[in-house]
Lab assay of single mutants.
Amino acid sequence: MISLIAALAVDRVIGMENAMPWNLPADLAWFKRNTLNKPVIMGRHTWESIGRPLPGRKNIILSSQPGTDDRVTWVKSVDEAIAACGDVPEIMVIGGGRVYEQFLPKAQKLYLTHIDAEVEGDTHFPDYEPDDWESVFSEFHDADAQNSHSYCFEILERR
């Protein structure tokens, strides 16, 4: 099963200049909980913004210009990325925008964090048809001392 995991502000903004323009430790914990011990696929820009392999996960970098870091697996196509994951129950696609666009048609599940923030962004989550998805989990949280904005975790499964 292919799943996408993303944090989205208003207007589906997911990033600005290779960074997330908010401070939500709870979302980072949600991300870790849902990706640990699963292969993660990301684009080169996302890889560069993280700066290191995510521990406890097979890191697969999709790029037309593969790098030389041998701590991760470099691939040039969506099919190659899927094959590099091996026989696993769930593959997690973690961004960025172009990689989400490439995998959305193949995805069966979306793990979304909806952030109540209007922020400037240069990267967006692809538009998706809500009628194609069923919400199977939703959990709202107010902003607090650690988390700069209110947010809602949601899991959607393709109908």
Rank of each mutant, 00 (worst) to 15 (best):
S3V: 00
S3H: 02
S3C: 00
S3K: 02
S3M: 00
L4A: 02
L4C: 02
I5V: 00
A7L: 01
A7V: 03
L8P: 00
L8R: 04
L8T: 12
A9C: 11
A9Q: 02
A9V: 08
V10T: 03
V10E: 09
V10Q: 02
V10G: 06
D11C: 04
R12G: 02
V13T: 11
V13Q: 03
V13P: 00
I14K: 14
G15P: 02
M16H: 02
M16K: 02
M16D: 03
E17Y: 02
N18Q: 14
N18A: 08
A19I: 12
M20P: 00
P21A: 07
N23R: 09
N23V: 12
L24S: 05
L24A: 15
P25R: 05
P25Q: 03
P25E: 06
P25M: 13
P25V: 04
A26P: 06
A26W: 02
D27G: 02
L28W: 01
L28T: 02
L28N: 02
L28D: 00
L28Y: 14
A29F: 06
A29R: 04
A29S: 04
A29C: 03
W30M: 15
F31C: 01
F31G: 01
R33Y: 14
R33L: 11
N34A: 06
L36C: 03
L36S: 11
L36F: 15
L36W: 07
N37Q: 12
N37F: 11
K38W: 04
K38T: 11
P39Y: 10
P39T: 15
V40F: 09
V40C: 12
V40S: 06
I41R: 02
M42E: 01
M42H: 01
G43W: 03
R44F: 06
R44V: 06
R44E: 04
H45G: 12
H45M: 05
H45T: 15
H45Y: 04
W47N: 03
W47G: 00
E48P: 03
E48G: 15
S49D: 05
S49F: 03
S49A: 12
S49L: 01
G51T: 14
G51Q: 11
R52K: 13
R52I: 14
P53L: 15
P53A: 14
P53G: 13
P53M: 12
P53K: 11
P53N: 13
L54I: 03
L54G: 00
P55V: 12
G56A: 10
G56R: 09
G56S: 10
G56K: 07
R57W: 00
K58N: 11
K58C: 10
K58Q: 11
I60M: 09
I60H: 03
I61C: 11
L62W: 03
L62Q: 01
S63K: 02
S63F: 02
S63Y: 03
S64D: 08
S64T: 12
S64Y: 11
Q65R: 14
Q65D: 12
Q65W: 15
Q65Y: 13
Q65N: 12
Q65T: 15
P66S: 12
P66A: 14
P66G: 14
G67A: 14
T68D: 15
T68G: 12
T68W: 12
T68N: 13
D69W: 09
D69A: 11
D69P: 11
D69V: 08
D70T: 15
D70K: 13
D70C: 14
R71F: 09
R71E: 13
R71A: 12
V72W: 13
V72K: 01
T73F: 10
T73E: 12
W74Y: 15
W74L: 06
W74K: 03
W74M: 10
V75Q: 05
V75N: 03
K76L: 14
K76R: 14
V78G: 09
V78K: 12
V78T: 13
D79N: 12
E80I: 07
E80F: 08
A81M: 03
I82T: 07
A83K: 08
A83M: 11
A83E: 14
A84C: 11
C85M: 08
C85H: 04
C85R: 01
G86S: 08
G86H: 09
G86R: 12
G86L: 07
D87W: 09
D87P: 09
D87V: 09
D87M: 09
D87A: 11
V88Y: 13
V88Q: 11
V88T: 12
P89S: 07
P89L: 10
E90G: 01
E90V: 02
E90M: 04
E90H: 07
I91T: 12
I91A: 15
I91Y: 06
I91W: 05
M92R: 00
M92V: 12
V93I: 06
I94A: 04
I94V: 08
I94C: 04
I94T: 03
G97C: 04
G97M: 05
V99P: 00
Y100W: 09
Y100T: 00
E101A: 09
E101T: 05
E101L: 08
E101S: 08
Q102A: 11
Q102C: 12
P105N: 09
P105L: 09
P105G: 09
P105K: 08
P105Y: 07
K106T: 12
K106F: 11
K106Q: 07
K106A: 09
Q108I: 06
Q108G: 08
Q108T: 10
K109E: 01
K109Q: 14
K109L: 13
K109Y: 03
L110A: 02
L110V: 06
Y111T: 00
Y111C: 05
L112W: 01
H114W: 13
I115L: 01
D116R: 14
D116P: 06
D116M: 15
D116F: 15
D116S: 13
A117I: 12
A117W: 03
E118R: 13
E118K: 13
E118Y: 07
V119C: 15
V119H: 04
V119K: 05
V119Y: 03
V119G: 03
E120W: 08
G121N: 00
G121M: 00
G121S: 01
D122A: 00
D122C: 01
T123V: 09
T123D: 00
T123E: 02
H124M: 07
H124C: 13
F125G: 02
P126S: 06
P126V: 11
P126W: 04
P126K: 05
D127T: 12
D127P: 12
D127R: 15
Y128E: 03
Y128G: 03
E129V: 10
P130I: 13
P130N: 12
D131S: 04
D131K: 06
D131Y: 13
D131P: 10
W133Y: 12
E134L: 10
E134S: 08
E134C: 11
S135N: 14
V136M: 11
V136Q: 09
F137R: 10
F137V: 10
F137K: 09
F137Q: 12
S138G: 05
E139T: 07
E139R: 06
E139G: 06
E139P: 00
E139A: 07
F140E: 12
F140L: 13
H141A: 05
D142N: 09
D142T: 10
D142L: 11
A143H: 06
A143I: 07
A143D: 08
D144W: 03
A145R: 06
A145Q: 09
N147L: 02
N147S: 06
S148G: 01
H149E: 05
Y151P: 01
Y151V: 11
Y151G: 02
C152E: 07
C152N: 11
C152G: 12
F153N: 04
F153Y: 06
F153L: 12
E154T: 14
E154G: 06
E154I: 11
I155W: 02
I155P: 01
L156A: 06
L156T: 03
L156E: 00
E157I: 08
R158A: 05
R158M: 06
R158Y: 05
